[in-house]
């Protein structure tokens, strides 16, 4: 971190709405300004801290913009090959059943190259949490079409907009996994407003609780933005997300445990 950036002088304690979680490291996040990944990381860190789970957590981050997640979270982590986090996490959890295990996957990772690993882990009901960041684009590689790219949406490999006849339809993985007997809790959230952040955090808390009861796979999709890939400002991207992404990927619980 640069020497000139003195947090103490810039942030007045009295004005702090919340504090950085102890489970976040001091490293600067590697994300573009306004990207939802950072907020999602923070929430995971907070839930781990609140649950006193730092020494019991093993996270798995595959390839994608969040490949360096292990630089941000002060927990044991494994970096997995593109798409393979659910397979990696399957073994971690089965060999260390007393740990809290989660994966954190992008849409390219989870819904394209890693579709098989994701569906089969969910179908087996592996006892870990999958956090699925759906930004409808390949962020890390520079904004190519993802399996979740909306019909008509532009990307560097669908420069004239996604033509569903030529390029296929967007895949709603969350609805799909909700149908599988192995999943216990499946929900779709976002992190673009304070209210949405609170809801996502609540979902994460529930997932952690269910994981401790070994009830099956918990799956939280976070519909998120990619200002760089979408070629918008952070604010524009959030508006665009509300107008275009949410109608196609409606927020809310999809599968909740019977009380």
């Amino acid at each position: 971190m640069s020497e000139s950036f003195d947090k103490k002088s810039m942030i007045d304690e009295a004005n702090l709405a919340y504090k950085k979680s102890e489970v976040m490291t001091e490293n600067v996040l590697s994300y573009c300004p306004g990207c939802g990944h950072g907020t999602a990381h923070r929430l995971i860190a907070e839930v781990i801290e609140e649950g006193d789970l730092q020494d019991k957590t093993i996270g798995v981050c595959p390839v994608g913009c969040s490949v360096l997640m292990y630089n941000s979270l002060d927990i044991d982590m494994q970096q997995a090959a593109h798409g393979r986090a659910p397979a990696v996490a399957t073994a971690v959890k089965r060999l260390m059943p007393e740990k809290f295990v989660f994966t954190y996957q992008g849409d390219g990772d989870l819904a394209a190259i890693g579709t098989a690993e994701t569906l089969h882990a969910c179908n087996r009901g592996e006892n870990f949490l999958i956090v699925f960041i759906n930004n409808a684009i390949y962020g890390m590689t520079g904004g190519q079409m993802a399996p979740t790219t909306l019909p008509g949406m532009r990307s560097s490999t669908s420069p004239h907009g996604r033509d569903t006849i030529l390029m296929g339809n967007p895949l709603k993985m969350t609805e799909l996994v909700a149908k599988l007997p192995g999943t216990y809790f499946v929900t779709r959230q976002s992190v673009h407003t304070p209210a949405a952040v609170r809801k996502t955090k609540k979902a994460l808390r529930k997932a952690v609780e269910y994981q401790q009861q070994s009830k099956g796979t918990c799956f939280i999709e976070i519909v998120s933005n990619c200002p760089s890939g979408w070629k918008m400002t952070a604010l524009q991207s959030n508006e665009w997300m509300e107008e275009n992404m949410f109608p196609f990927y409606p927020l809310g619980d999809i599968k909740v445990p019977e009380e």
């Binding site: 798995v60 090959a81 393979r84 397979a87 399957t90 073994a91 089965r94 098989a116 690993e117 089969h120």
Partner: peptide, 19 residues
């Protein structure tokens, strides 16, 4: 565990070895 593919199996090995 019978994995869904050899790809999954070797990545399970990665996860277990990492522990």
């Amino acid at each position: 565990l019978q994995a869904e593919s050899e790809v999954a199996a070797i990545n399970m090995v990665y996860g277990g070895a990492g522990c």
